[in-house]
Amino acid sequence: MTATEPATVRPPLPVKMVISGGFGVGKTTAVGSISEIEPLTTEAAITEVAAGVDDLTHTPRKTTTTVAMDFGCLTIDPTLKLYLFGTPGQERFGFMWDDIVEGAVGGLVIVDTRRLDDCYAAVDYFEHKGIPFAVAANAFDGHVEHTLEEIRWALDVTEGVPVVVFDARERGSVRDALLVVLELALARTSA
């Protein structure tokens, strides 16, 4: 077997962002609004840490669960491609999405303002991992239930975390929410 690869196509550099939030908040809708392909679904393994074991001196019981994960992509240019991965909807706490999230440049946590507590796990996860993220309140039926200040207070996110209102069905709106995250990631590189 020769070691040279004369005609092998050079792939684009993949840049990954993660779309997260509770079950049914519009993650796949948001991915589909901006992806150049219909969102694809694959099965990924996630680690579920048994609830109630948060004492680090104990070994938490972990089980690996196979879940469906939706994703899409957007070609920026022939050398650069943006991938958007939706974390599986979690009704329970303690999921670890490291397999999906490792190497992501940023995250967008989508919240349904009628059920704010559904997104706590995602907020905690990104804070814990130190991944730049923004909170995007999905304007179902064109409006949100709370002001941005109320959402920020309820989620207890720091001043450095942008909170925006967006519409997961609108391409321009999803684009702008992603830009907020990317600007935050960029600001961090110069910090």
Partner: peptide
Amino acid sequence: VQDASVLRRVIDGLRAIPD
């Protein structure tokens, strides 16, 4: 991937996406 120049290219590319 997380280099500022790459992030700027993604930002510029995304901004060019129509509504």
